[in-house]
Every structure is written in structure tokens, then in C-alpha cells.
């Protein structure tokens, strides 16, 4: 029984990180119709801030990572995506690949290609044993952090005036604009929120690895994007659940696949994605109707 519970704890922790990544991607997609692959480089930027500033001051490092993530989100929109508002989502996705590669090269130029190492939140890199279960402090923090941020995002979206406007923009951007919702503000708020979520992902991942390189955020974004797609890019909640499901499944495959089959865990996740998209082409939680925006 303990191995089963232990695997569920590990899977929940992994799922929480990808849920955060997917939520950030889903939020932006909901408003901008932008499946932002460059979200990985926002995570990377925040991670560099954490690694480099942490030795000076941990509160400053946390603040710097959030500021960097938000700034990068806004800057990439200002420099690239705002000029492509009328383009198709596919064009925006391709553009985000370009931004992603450009930023990776920029990181290489600024920080070098090799890893920068440092201990971020070293107090969290230990475990406690409770009744035979290994509880990683970082896993606990990751789950709590994800839960708090998800609840905060939920309350913001459902209880605040601005959050309701973001939701309205996500549901039907054209009608929201006609109703007088200021699109520029909504976009900035959405990008800011995605930046905060990216900084949270960066915090968990840098604490876990203690190292960052120019492609640091790519993997989390890959799985976050996949999760958002299978959950339903059109639905913020769907993206969140999809991201969690991908991380959860990946972790369970790692734990339970028989020896010799472990290398297929990622392939199995992709197989699941194919199956889901065959059954529900728009994602599990998305509606079947296409959406419009100008």
C-alpha cells in the first residue's frame, strides 16, 4: 500500500508543476489565441534571476524572478505578438517558436551555454519520513504553491471585476471589446498572471535542480502545452486539469512501468494525447464548436 501512496504523492507533485505551466499557457491562449511556446523562455529567465540573485538575498531573488517573468511576458507581446493580433493561431504559434529560439540564443550570449548552478531554497531539498512515506519538502511546497496560485487565479477570475473581464475576453474577445472591455489592459493583466505562474514553475524547478541553462524551461513548457491541448486550450480550467494529468501520468508511468519499459514513458504520454485528441479533437473540456476572434 505504501508504494501506491508514495507514487501518488510523487505524481501529485509532478502534476502540480505541469498544472502551473499549463495554466499560464491556457490563460494566454484564452485571451490572445496564442499557444505561447516561448513560455519556456519566460521560465528560463525567471530561473536565471533566482540562481543569480539568491546568494545575495532570497526575497530579492523571488521578487526579481517574478519581475523578470512579467517583464518578459509583456516585452515579447509588445515586440512581436501585438503586431500579429489579426493573424491565425497557427501563425502565432510559429512566431512563438521563433521568439523561443531567439531568447535561447540571447541567454547563450548573456549567460553562456553551460549550466549556471546555485542552491535555491536549500532548506527545501530534504525529505521527512512519515509512516514509511517519503515526503519531500519541495514536493509539499510545490503542491501547496500550485494550490494557492490556482485558488488565487480562480478567485481573481470569478470574484474580481477585472478577472471577470479577463474571462469575458477569453470567452469571446470580440464581444468583450464591443462591450467596452479595454483589451490592452486585459492582455497585460493576463500576461502578467502568466508571468507569475512561470516564475512559480521556475522556483520549483530551480530548487529541484540547482542549475539553469538556456533551454531550462523547454521541457516544462512542452508538457504544459501538451496538457493544455488535451485539457482544451479554449478552457482555462481544462488546460489546468490537462497539465496536471500529463505530469501525473508521466510520474505514474515512471514508477509503475516494468523494468525495460521505463524508457517508453514519454512515448506513452504522447500515445495518450493521440487517443484523447482522436476522441475529443478540441480537448477533453473544450466545446466542439470553433471560436472566432478578430
Amino acid at each position: 500500500m505504501i508504494p501506491v501512496i508514495q507514487s501518488l504523492i510523487d505524481a501529485t507533485s509532478a502534476g502540480a508543476v505541469y498544472a502551473l505551466a499549463a495554466l499560464g499557457i491556457g490563460l494566454v491562449f484564452g485571451v490572445l489565441r496564442l499557444a505561447n511556446f516561448a513560455n519556456g523562455e519566460i521560465i528560463t529567465g525567471a530561473a536565471y534571476a533566482l540562481i543569480l540573485v539568491w546568494p545575495l538575498s532570497w526575497p530579492l531573488a523571488l521578487a526579481a524572478s517574478v519581475v523578470v517573468a512579467i517583464a518578459l511576458s509583456l516585452l515579447m507581446d509588445l515586440a512581436v505578438f501585438r503586431w500579429m493580433r489579426s493573424q491565425s493561431a497557427a501563425s502565432l504559434l510559429i512566431a512563438s517558436f521563433g521568439v523561443s529560439i531567439l531568447l535561447q540564443r540571447a541567454y547563450e550570449g548573456i549567460f553562456g551555454v553551460n549550466v549556471r548552478t546555485g542552491a535555491v531554497a536549500p532548506a527545501l531539498t530534504r525529505s521527512v519520513n512519515v509512516g514509511g512515506l517519503r515526503l519531500s519538502m519541495l514536493a509539499i511546497v510545490a503542491i501547496i504553491l500550485a494550490a494557492v496560485l490556482l485558488i488565487a487565479v480562480h478567485f481573481f477570475l470569478t470574484k474580481s471585476r477585472m478577472g471577470l473581464q479577463v474571462q469575458a475576453a477569453a470567452a469571446n474577445f470580440r464581444e468583450a471589446r464591443i462591450l467596452g472591455i479595454r483589451s490592452g489592459v486585459m492582455i497585460a493583466v493576463t500576461l502578467g498572471m502568466s508571468g507569475i505562474l512561470a516564475a512559480a514553475v521556475a522556483f520549483v524547478l530551480t530548487t529541484q535542480s540547482g542549475a539553469v541553462n538556456p533551454t531550462f524551461g523547454v521541457q516544462a513548457t512542452l508538457f504544459g502545452l501538451i496538457g493544455a491541448v488535451i485539457g482544451g486550450l479554449n478552457r482555462i480550467g481544462g488546460a489546468l486539469v490537462g497539465g496536471f494529468a500529463v505530469g501525473f501520468a508521466l510520474s505514474l508511468f515512471t514508477t509503475w512501468l516494468p523494468s525495460g519499459f521505463g524508457d517508453f514513458r514519454v512515448a506513452l504520454v504522447y500515445l495518450l494525447v493521440i487517443v484523447v485528441l482522436l476522441i475529443a479533437p478540441n480537448g477533453i473540456f473544450a466545446g466542439r464548436t470553433a471560436k472566432e476572434r478578430t
Binding site: 511556446f37 504559434l93 502545452l225 501538451i226 514519454v266 480537448g283 473544450a286 470553433a290 472566432e292 476572434r293
Partner: peptide, 21 residues
């Protein structure tokens, strides 16, 4: 402009899979 979420979903998965591989 017409937006097809099915297209973007498929494109996303193909693109990220290709990058992963």
C-alpha cells in the same frame, strides 16, 4: 478571422513532439 482550435491543437502536439524528438 476564423479560428479552428482543432488545427492549433494538432499543430501544437506535432510541433512540440518534433522538438522533443
Amino acid at each position: 478571422m476564423r479560428f479552428a482550435s482543432r488545427t492549433i491543437a494538432t499543430l501544437s502536439v506535432v510541433a512540440v513532439s518534433a522538438l522533443a524528438l
